[in-house]
Every structure is written in structure tokens, then in C-alpha cells.
């Protein structure tokens, strides 16, 4: 099966003055197309850094990274931006919507960078917002929405771009259990459509919805688990 991302011996060090933090220490990870992978690990284990590197938000210091069959280690900034825009969708714990923009405009942002014509943008936005049940909130500002609704807008922003890979960083971290389940249901639906998802989470409940589980410790993959972890409870959010 074709790999969506193939990271080999990836290292990433953050430096602040004399202090060095080894966020990723020779991480190797292969994710096949269409997989739904959860990434767990204690705080500081490198989960978010892994997503940042995987999503081309942060370049690795060393190692080989092939995304969608393309070696992305030596790409220009504009090329990486284009790949981010067309192949990757991000879902963040804090939603990261732009507060001055309406729901419509927030979803439109990545489509504008893709240079799609206005009509196609509008169609995609309408479809995406319908699929997350927020069509009626088109002109609302993020501050007028609940946390769950904001995360659904963020998911609509991803859906509108039809990415091959979704990187979700604690997507339910700021939500109550009811909202969390709704978001996870949405992610499962998206995954059902063939999209590859890599999700960082602290929640065993959420991790249980993934098909493969990875544990990170000190910037390395310490356990590749093909089976889901034991489910604590159906409602046990995080």
C-alpha cells in the first residue's frame, strides 16, 4: 500500500539561548494512505512537533521526509505553502479561526490561497458547512459560536479544501464530551471517505476511534500498536 507520509530518522531541536530541547530524536514513522492514526504520549514527548513537521509548518533539522510520494526535505517556501494548502488540512485544539472573519470567510481562506474561482469557492464552502451542520451560521463571527461550533467550522475549513491528509492536534481538547463525540464522529466520517488522518490526543476515548495507535516518548516512537488501547468508558472524554 502507498504511504501518505514516510518519516525516517527525523530530528528536531529547539534552541533558546544555551538551552536545547530535543523535540524529535530520530523519529521514524510511516503512515499509509487512508489510515486513521492516533498519536499519544506525555507532555513534551514531541507530539505537536511531529504534527508541525508532518504538516510542513516546521522543517526538520535532519532526516528524510516523504509526503505523498514527494521528498519535501528540500522544497522552497512557496512550494511547501502550496503543498500545505492542497494536500494537508489542520485541525487545532484552539480552533485557530480568524476572529475578524465570518464563518464563511474563515472557511474561504485556504481556498483563496489556492486561487479557486469565486463560484467554486462558494460551492465548496456551502457543501462543507452543510456537512458540519453550520449552514445557518454563515455570517456569524467565531465569537458568536460555541466551542464545538467553532471546531466544526475549523473542520469545515479542512473539508472545503479536500486534503489527502488531515493533521489534528487535540481536536477535542477544548470541548466537552458531547461536543467531542460530535467532532470525532465527523472525523470518522471524513476518514470513511478515504482521507488519511493523524490525530494527536491525550484522550483514550478519542484514540480508540483511530485504527492505529502510536506512542511517543522523548521524541521517538516507542510503541506501534495495531490494536486500539483499552477503552476506559464510552463517555470518558480525555
Amino acid at each position: 500500500m502507498v504511504h501518505m507520509l514516510r518519516m525516517t530518522n527525523i530530528r528536531k531541536v529547539y534552541r533558546a539561548g544555551m538551552l536545547e530541547v530535543h523535540a524529535l530524536s530520530g523519529l521514524t514513522l510511516h503512515v499509509r494512505q487512508g489510515e486513521f492514526v492516533s498519536v499519544m504520549g506525555p507532555s513534551g514527548s514531541g507530539k505537536t512537533t511531529l504534527l508541525n513537521v508532518a504538516g510542513l509548518l516546521d522543517p526538520p533539522d535532519s532526516g528524510e521526509y516523504v509526503l505523498g510520494g514527494l521528498d519535501v526535505g528540500r522544497l522552497s517556501d512557496s512550494r511547501m505553502s502550496r503543498i500545505r494548502n492542497q494536500m494537508v488540512g489542520f485541525i487545532f485544539q484552539s480552533f485557530n479561526l480568524i476572529p475578524e472573519l465570518s464563518v464563511f470567510d474563515n472557511v474561504e481562506v485556504p481556498l483563496r490561497y489556492r486561487g479557486l474561482p469565486a463560484r467554486e469557492r462558494r460551492e465548496r464552502i456551502e457543501r462543507a458547512l452543510e456537512s458540519v451542520g453550520l449552514w445557518s451560521r454563515l455570517h456569524h463571527l467565531p465569537s458568536q459560536l460555541s466551542g464545538g461550533q467553532q471546531q466544526r467550522v475549523a473542520i469545515a475549513r479542512v473539508l472545503a479544501g479536500s486534503p489527502q491528509l488531515i493533521l489534528a492536534d487535540e481536536p477535542t481538547g477544548n470541548l466537552d464530551s458531547y461536543m467531542a463525540r460530535q467532532v470525532m464522529d465527523l472525523l470518522e466520517t471524513i476518514h470513511g471517505g478515504g482521507t488519511t488522518i493523524v490525530m494527536v490526543t491525550h484522550s483514550h476515548e478519542c484514540a480508540a476511534r483511530a485504527l492505529r495507535h502510536i506512542h511517543l516518548l522523548d521524541g521517538r516512537v516507542v510503541d506501534l500498536d495495531e490494536d486500539p488501547p483499552p477503552r476506559l468508558s464510552r463517555d470518558g472524554g480525555r
Binding site: 504538516g55 512557496s78 505553502s81 494548502n85 489542520f90 485557530n96 480568524i98 490561497y113 489556492r114
Partner: peptide
């Protein structure tokens, strides 16, 4: 600046 970083994450190039 956070908005800028969000836009960069969503595909904005440095030039844009």
C-alpha cells in the same frame, strides 16, 4: 501575528 501564522498554516506564502 497569530492570524498570520494561521494563514501560513493554511497555505499562504511569504509573498502573499
Amino acid at each position: 501575528s497569530k492570524e498570520v501564522e494561521i494563514r501560513r498554516a493554511l497555505g499562504a506564502t511569504r509573498w502573499s
